[in-house]
Amino acid sequence: MLNEQTEPAVELGGIADATDPPVTGYRLLLPGEWAKVPLRHGTEDAVRQILDDAFARIPADAPTDRIGPYKRELERRFRASVAGAQQSEALDLYLPVKPMGDFNIGASILVTESLLPRPSGRSHGESEPTEVAVQLLSRDGVENADLSSGEIDGALAVRREHVGAAAPDKGAELASRRVEYMVSVPGDPDRWFVAAFSTVGGGDPRDELAEALVEWFDAVMANFRWSRG
């Protein structure tokens, strides 16, 4: 069953076209197994609710001497993920907190905001999508990425896909498949909404599970919609 994750105002809006209400946020349609952790307000309440729900699913006949260590390790890893997302000054983090079918999914969606000032002397709307993509995506040194551009809910969108190497020193024990969508905020071409999806698949970022999850995320973004005032 799908739940509509409707986000309230998240400071994404600018001066909208006179014919349209201003953008105040965004909407994602995600499975019920996924949960949202807001990273600017209400973070602790969301974290506590997710952990309580996870602890409640521990089998009643589980060995009592293992429950305590399991809870502590689960909470430590979960809070570390949230803290890492907060350090990137992101808006929201989405995680699959319940098994999907018979297995747990190693994946996440991180929502951030990026400001891209126009080059000197350049007016709104003059940049080509490929030029915008270069400016947005050349900052982090990623090579051999697949780039494409188009529109999502009437706004310019740029998609990048690549495989990120494992980085044990940063808590990434496995390589991951990454797909990022950057969508220009209507009414404010300098401001961009960014949704970054990451998955380790079944242990190989190019395996069948990773491929299926990338297709799923593409479908999620195809149904992305702005919230307007």
Rank of each mutant, 00 (worst) to 15 (best):
A222S: 15
S123Y: 08
D190S: 12
D65Y: 07
D65K: 05
D169P: 06
T43S: 08
M1Q: 14
T112G: 15
E143R: 13
T199V: 03
I152Q: 05
L209H: 03
M182V: 06
R72F: 09
D140L: 14
A155C: 07
G42S: 09
R225M: 10
S148E: 12
P186E: 03
G32C: 08
R66S: 09
S227Y: 02
G106D: 13
V97T: 11
I15M: 10
N223S: 13
E208P: 04
T6L: 10
A107N: 03
E128V: 14
L29I: 07
S184Y: 01
A210W: 01
V10A: 14
E113Q: 15
R27D: 06
A18I: 15
V179P: 00
I105A: 08
F55Y: 15
L12I: 12
Q86S: 08
G154W: 10
L74F: 13
M221Y: 02
L174N: 10
A133W: 01
R118T: 04
A80Y: 08
E151T: 14
E208C: 04
P189W: 00
G13L: 07
A90L: 05
V220Y: 02
L209S: 02
P117A: 04
G121D: 03
R76W: 10
L29W: 04
I109D: 01
L209W: 04
V47E: 12
P8Q: 12
W226F: 11
G154L: 04
R79A: 00
I109L: 15
S120L: 14
D140M: 07
R57A: 11
D153T: 08
P59Q: 03
A166I: 02
I105H: 07
E180A: 14
A157Y: 07
R77W: 08
D207G: 02
E131G: 13
L95G: 00
G229L: 09
A16E: 14
W192C: 03
G164W: 02
E4R: 13
Y181P: 00
G202E: 11
E143K: 15
V194M: 08
W192T: 08
A62C: 11
I105Y: 05
D146C: 03
V142S: 11
R191Q: 09
R57C: 03
D190L: 08
E215V: 00
D146E: 12
V179R: 02
A54E: 10
M221N: 01
I15Y: 09
R225W: 00
L2A: 09
R122W: 11
A83T: 14
A172M: 13
R40W: 12
D61K: 08
N144L: 13
A175S: 14
E180T: 10
H41L: 12
E4L: 13
G68C: 01
K170T: 06
D188P: 00
S120D: 14
L95W: 03
P96Y: 02
T130F: 10
L136R: 06
E44M: 06
A145E: 05
E33L: 10
F78G: 05
R160G: 02
N104Y: 15
V179A: 01
D20L: 07
G68V: 11
D52T: 11
F224K: 01
